[in-house]
Design a protein around this nucleic acid. Structure first.
Length: 146
DNA sequence: TAGGCCATCTGGTCCT
DNA sequence: AGGACCAGATGGCCTA
């Protein structure tokens, strides 16, 4: 496959990737469907902007006043058990959402760097990584053979 | 309806 | 001690 890719033009490369590596399996819901060049609406609309203290979620879920880390399942044997308050848990949730948001921003940036057809559906994260790997390999081979 | 993808929550671990 | 990172679990949405 690599040899064939080296001999291909970039368009051919994209074609190959679309036909071989990504056979129309990158599905996305209507509300998540985006142009390849446009930032994802899911990512543009910060999911935590109106939930900075997570109080709404907490109210819905009826969270206890304190969370006991490692207090369930096989994790309960942990000796480093750390008791955290609801506020701390909420803050951690917000941080985690922000972290995932920045991760998705990076994925979006990577999506814009790898070649795809305009009409193609938005790449999933795993397909983005796989396509990036193949694309880098292709470009590396191209440089080495010129 | 099953499977894929994703967002979110959560607890464990590592690092500062 | 607290934040960052990670992985597992869960549930929702969408498509074939």
């Amino acid at each position: 496959m690599q040899d064939r890719l080296v001999d291909s033009t970039l368009i051919d490369f994209v074609n190959d990737m679309n036909l071989i590596e990504f056979p129309q399996k990158c599905t996305l819901g209507a509300k998540q469907q985006v142009d390849n060049d446009a930032p994802s609406p899911r990512l543009s609309d910060s999911p935590w902007s109106d939930l900075e203290n997570d109080s709404d979620i907490c109210a819905v879920m009826g969270a206890p006043k304190y969370y006991s880390r490692g207090a369930h399942g096989h994790h309960s044997k942990s000796k480093r058990r750390r008791i955290i308050s609801v506020v701390q848990r909420q803050a951690a949730n917000v941080r985690e959402r922000k972290r995932m948001f920045s991760l998705n921003e990076a994925f979006d940036e990577l999506r814009r760097k790898v070649p795809t057809f305009a009409y193609e559906k938005r790449l999933s994260r795993i397909d983005t990584l796989r396509l990036a790997i193949v694309y880098i390999s292709f470009m590396t081979d191209l440089l080495e053979n010129t």
